[in-house]
Each structure stands twice: as C-alpha cells, then as structure tokens.
C-alpha cells in the first residue's frame, strides 16, 4: 500500500537534492525552488494549466449540475441517451476522443487556442459532477420541492432556495475531483496544445523524454503539496457543513 505513495515521496525528497542529476544524493538544498521561479517556460505552463482547469471546471459545474437536475425530471429514454453520451468519454481510452476533438477543432474556421483544451477537458469533467449530483438528487425528498412550489415559489426560486443548497456538497466534491483530473490530463492536452498553450503535464512529458532537472521536481513537489492542501480544505469544509 505504501508503495502507491513511494514515487510521490521520492519526488518531494529529491526536490531538495543538491546534486544536479536525480541519481545521486548530494546534500540538502532549497536552491532548486529559487531557480524554479526564474524559469519562465515552466511557470508559464503552470499558468496555462490553471487557466484551462478553471475554465473547464466552471463550464462543467454549470452544465453538469443543471444537466443532472434537468435529467432527473425526464423520462427513461432521455436519461439513457444522456448517460450514454456522458459516460462514453470515461469508458473509452482518452486518446480516441482526443483524436476526434483534434480533428473537430482543426476543421473549425477559428483558432480556439486554450479554450479548445478547456472544452476538451469538460468532456471528462462533466461526468464526475453529473454522477455526484444525480446520486444526491435521488436522496432528495421530492416533497420538499412540492412544498416550495405549493408555497408559491417559482421554478427558479425553488432551485436556488431548495435544490441547490442540498446538492451543493455534491457539486463541490465533483468540482474538486474534476479539477484534479483536468490538472492531470496529459493525453487530451498534448493532442490539443499549440506552442503557446502548453500546459504543465505536456511540458513535463516533453522534459521527461530528454531528462528532467531538479527544478521540475521542485515544481512537482509544490503542486503535490498544493493538491493535498486543496483536499484538506475540501475535507474541512465538508466537516464544518456537517456539524452545522
């Protein structure tokens, strides 16, 4: 079990390695973190990643949540066709839909740039949000919504005052997981990225083929710590919500 986390630990330890090659341990240093902040290309790729992820998660949260709420009221046939379309990107190898999306965006008259990567990411982000929200909706007592409607609230008001607050934890969980997936995407991103829209995983992939520097380990370590921080915050928020 601990073997699962071994490579993560190794990256963090070696980001403090004085030696320039990854192989030998040459003493403790924080110097790589300093040189990292001078490496524009690496930092730009992180900025691109953050932009793509924020765009993808925002679009996915809106579409996934409303999709799940809307689908819950539809007949079996509509529900099934949505499920088929939603789960296809999760079941198929990512490279297939990546190929399709590349062909699709190449055929478009305008250059989508970074938006193309974000839109591609929504295809695998929406499912996570959709699944979590659908599960939560099933547990929601329909009498609550009827009560709100009987008391004179419109469809909009019912949604924002009754449905949304009760599905919010599910939306948050889905959003966090899809953000992690989007930040991690190598396949889709490397197919759709242009020289000016390279994301961190794509840069890391090309560096790994020629040999990485400890700077990369330092950046990876920072990202690992940031992700664990996010998870801790998410966990904490859910705890607080429960205790209220």
């Amino acid at each position: 079990m601990l073997l699962l986390y071994l490579p993560i630990a190794v990256i963090i330890v070696y980001s403090f390695n004085y030696s320039e090659t990854d192989a030998v341990w040459g003493g403790f240093t924080t110097g790589w973190y300093r040189t990292l902040f001078a490496n524009r290309r690496l930092l730009d790729s992180v900025a691109n990643s953050v932009r793509v992820t924020m765009l993808a998660v925002c679009i996915s949260v809106v579409l996934g949540t409303f999709g799940a709420v809307a689908a819950a009221r539809c007949g079996k046939f509509v529900k099934r066709s949505i499920s088929a379309l939603i789960f296809t990107p999760l079941i198929l190898p990512e490279i297939i839909l990546g190929t399709g999306l590349l062909l699709f965006f190449t055929a478009m008259p305008v250059n989508f740039g970074i938006l193309a990567i974000a839109l591609a990411h929504t295809t695998f982000c929406i499912p996570y949000i959709y699944i979590f929200v659908s599960i939560r909706l099933k547990k929601l007592d329909p009498a609550l919504i009827d009560a709100a409607r009987d008391l004179g609230a419109g469809a909009c008001r019912t949604f924002f005052a009754v449905t949304l607050p009760s599905i919010l934890p599910a939306v948050t969980t889905g959003a966090l997981i899809s953000a992690a997936m989007s930040l991690d995407s190598v396949v889709m991103s490397s197919l759709l990225s242009a020289p000016d829209s390279i994301t961190f995983p794509v840069r890391l992939f090309s560096l790994m083929r020629i040999g990485t520097t400890p700077e990369v380990n330092a950046l990876s370590a920072l990202m690992i710590v940031a992700m664990f921080g996010f998870a801790a915050v998410g966990f904490f928020l859910m705890r607080v919500k429960k205790n209220e």
């Binding site: 071994l6 490579p7 993560i8 630990a9 190794v10 990256i11 070696y14 990854d22 192989a23 930040l183 991690d184 190598v186 995983p201 890391l204 992939f205 790994m208 990485t212 990369v216 380990n217 990876s220 990202m223 690992i224 992700m227």
Partner: peptide, 12 residues
C-alpha cells in the same frame, strides 16, 4: 497526484 508526476518518481 498527477499520474505523470508519479511516473517521473518511478523514473528517479
């Protein structure tokens, strides 16, 4: 944690 970062860990 990113799968690519973990792959890089195994390379080391």
């Amino acid at each position: 944690t990113s799968s690519l970062i973990r792959t890089n860990g195994w390379m080391i």
